[in-house]
Design a protein around this nucleic acid. Structure first.
Length: 684
RNA sequence: GGCGGAGUAGCUCAGUUGGUUAGAGCAUGCGGUUCAUACCCGCAGUGUCGGGGGUUCAAGUCCCUCCUCCGCUACCA
């Protein structure tokens, strides 16, 4: 073994943020990793797959509070939900790490102690400007008129103490590494995004948040917890046993692959995490790959309104749907789901997800093509060869070569994380075999053979052996995606099944003379491909809200700057009752729009001059430019929140807020029914 | 506004470093076959490869420009 080459292959999924249940998005990442892991094991490597849950962060604490339970109880429940889902999907993860486990928190604290020792973290107390949008602090000289000169973003005056990671110090090193390791960041167009992101200039990152009793305390300063992103990434290292010298962590680090959805690629896995590792002089992961998202098609123009557009179902529920529709076993339905996810997703790109497509994919690929190939072949062996694997004198070299090509194509695609293409290479062999049968017409050969045609007899033996063997090879290649189905299919064609041996994929592994059982369809055809609303409901694929769609990604995309209030969940808002006194704190007034104009460089903002019965008119910025033209607002009455703290946007101070109804994301302004209400009238 | 992605057959998309008459799958239509899970095979298709310029012997591919859609982000107090 060459230096730097190990027998262990280490791959990770993201550590899923427990702000929701698993869905086919997280399932895709996890199943794909599982397939890659199984594939490596077939190659004879000891493959280790890590998954887990990210349980720190203010959001989690808040969600637990809303759910009325202690945070630990809350995350326990979600962690088991994830684990149960992966177990259900036959995911062979080697380790499931939770960021609330001691082994993780200890590794994180050690990591930060070293960062501090090496001078990569500094503490800073600022009495100065902070840009919420930039998440950056600015000196007085960088600011003019409440705007950061560098970025043009509004700033606020803060006095805050925090710890910072010297991310900016690693720009050059990162760029060099990326350049000299073309396979490091994939797909290629994402690597380019990273390069431009780094070239735009990295800023030191604030890595602490106030300690509110949930999170990993900052070493030596328990008033702070470590920002959730910094601790989450370290789980990849913590799982190996680092820094414990006796744990053998060096056998697993660096990781061979980090696999994830695109939203956590550029900033975190391709930039921050490598920089953190560089800071500790630890080797960088070999490959970081980002796949795209499932997209959910919206209503098409002209389609009936109100028809559900569907969303992303829960994986187990979807397996249930496949099981029910096809009538196959649960484990086979799970395999079908695994196959469908990896086949449908165009890795790297975004891909449309619909249950209809998935069901159709089941029928065409698994039932009609692969399943039927095995079924019809075995059937003919039963009828024409007495149920024994025939022993031809020669092979059809064209098919042998084709199987070889499929195999090398498969391996190439797998090494590039293009799992859908890997599957396609197998299915093209399957398609070729179905055609092969039609061309060779074994039934005709069998008839000739019974009439004493020895050449036809040999041709028949060759044809059926070639079909059995190609089906066996195709099934074996699909083992990483469908372990149970592959075993069942192999058994039907009389092949032995060894999950741990890619060598068995070689042509000629099928022993002539083996007895075959009568075939039983592994993937029964689905008769009804129609997906009803009831199906969508049952699988959890109901129409999503905007918020859910935003959260459909794999892990948390928490880029919320410190101090940003989180939007309260709708449920909580409905349940929380306020007193009349609470309400009276809000001063609502009728106002009249005297003037309106667009705000330069803003697509949503209108600058309104509003008469609210006071000596001076108010300047109010309203985010309604997409729904109202300035002209149509002038002269209209509106309802103004009069005692709201002023806020600067685009350099202009907004002195209030307009009430508007949220109609499916569109703003509809509220105004008095009667005309001529005197401006300034109190609304209550 | 900034950054990124996309625009190719009815639908979903491939098209690698520019190189023959632009492909696949699904759906549609017709035909064939019968071993099989009413399956499989064949044939037929329709394309101004978003528009317009340019480079070139040669452009879906490279350059410029414009249009449309999507995502992220900055502004929806």
């Amino acid at each position: 073994m060459k230096p730097g080459e190990r027998s262990t292959y280490y791959i990770t999924t993201p550590i899923y943020y427990v702000n929701g249940l698993p869905h086919v998005g997280t399932a895709l990442t996890t199943v794909a990793c599982d397939a890659l892991t199984r594939y490596q094991r077939m190659q004879g490597k000891k493959a280790v797959m890590l998954t887990g849950t990210d349980e720190n962060g203010a959001k989690i604490q808040e969600a637990a509070e809303n759910a009325g339970m202690p945070p630990m109880t809350f995350v326990d429940g979600l962690a088991s939900a994830f684990r149960a889902c992966w177990d259900d999907l036959d995911v062979c993860y080697s380790d499931f790490i939770r960021t609330t486990e001691p082994r993780h928190t200890e590794a994180v604290q050690t990591f930060f102690r070293i960062l501090l020792e090496k001078g990569h973290v500094y503490r800073d107390t600022y009495e100065g400007w902070y840009s919420v949008s930039d998440e950056t602090f600015y000196r007085d000289s960088d600011v003019e008129n409440g705007i950061a000169l560098e970025t043009g973003k509004p700033v606020v005056r803060v006095s805050e103490e925090n710890y910072f990671f010297r991310l900016s110090a690693f720009s050059e090193k990162l760029l060099q590494h990326i350049e000299s390791h073309p396979e490091f960041l994939l797909p290629e167009f994402r690597r380019n995004e990273v390069v431009s992101f780094i070239q735009e200039g990295l800023r030191d990152m604030c890595i602490t948040r106030p300690n509110k009793g949930w999170g990993i305390p900052f070493p030596g300063d328990s008033s702070k917890v470590i920002y959730v992103w910094f601790d989450a990434l370290i789980s990849y290292l913590a799982s190996t046993g680092w820094p414990n010298g006796e744990s053998g962590w060096e056998d697993r680090w660096p990781a061979d692959a980090h696999f994830m959805g695109k939203e956590i690629f550029v900033r975190f896995h391709a930039t921050l995490w490598p920089a953190m590792l560089m800071a500790l002089d630890l080797p960088l992961p070999r490959q970081v790959f980002a796949h795209g998202f499932w997209t959910v098609p919206g209503l098409k123009a002209g389609e009936k309104a109100g028809k559900s557009t569907g969303g992303l179902p829960h994986p187990s529920a979807m397996a249930g749907l496949l099981q029910e529709r096809s009538g196959t076993d649960r484990t086979l339905a799970v395999d079908a789901l695994r196959y469908i996810l990896c086949r449908e997703m165009n890795f790297g790109m975004d891909t449309e997800f619909t249950l209809e497509n998935c069901l159709r994919r089941y029928n065409t690929d698994l039932a009609n093509d692969l399943g039927n190939l095995v079924n019809r072949t075995v059937n003919m062996v039963q009828k024409y060869c007495g149920g024994q694997v025939p022993a031809p004198r020669a092979m059809d070299e064209e098919i042998v070569a084709l199987a070889g090509e499929a195999q090398s194509e498969f391996q190439r695609c797998m090494s590039e994380f293009r799992l859908n293409h890997a599957i396609e290479s197998v299915m093209s062999l399957v398609g070729r075999m179905n055609k092969y049968i039609d061309v060779r017409m074994p039934w005709a050969l069998a008839k000739q053979a019974t009439e004493g045609d020895r050449q036809a007899e040999e041709m028949l033996a060759q044809t059926l052996y070639v079909c059995l063997e190609a089906a066996r090879i195709a099934s074996l290649m699909l083992t990483p995606f469908m372990p149970t189905a592959a075993r069942a299919l192999c058994a039907q064609v009389g092949g032995s099944f060894d999950e741990a041996r890619w060598g068995a994929v070689q042509w000629g592994g099928l022993e002539p003379g083996a007895e075959l059982q009568p075939p039983k369809p592994v993937f029964p055809r689905i008769a009804d491909l129609v997906v009803t609303e009831a199906d969508l409901k049952r699988t959890g694929a109901l129409k999503e809200t905007k918020e859910e769609r935003r959260n459909m990604s794999n892990a948390h995309a928490e880029t919320v700057p410190p101090g940003t209030p989180l939007p309260p969940p709708d449920a909580a808002a409905e349940e929380t009752l306020i007193t009349i006194d609470d309400f009276m704190k809000v001063h609502l007034k009728v106002g009249e729009v005297l003037a309106a104009e667009p705000v330069p460089n803003a697509t949503k903002l209108l600058r309104l001059t509003v008469q609210t019965g006071e000596e001076e008119t108010r300047t109010i910025l309203a985010g309604v430019a997409e729904y109202y033209s300035p002209e149509e607002l002038v002269g209209k009455q509106v309802v103004v929140v009069a005692n709201l703290q002023p806020r600067k946007m685009r350099g202009i101070e907004s002195q209030g807020m307009l009430l508007a109804a949220d109609v499916e994301g569109r703003a509809v302004l509220v105004r008095p029914i009667a005309e001529g209400v005197p401006p300034g009238s109190r609304v209550r």
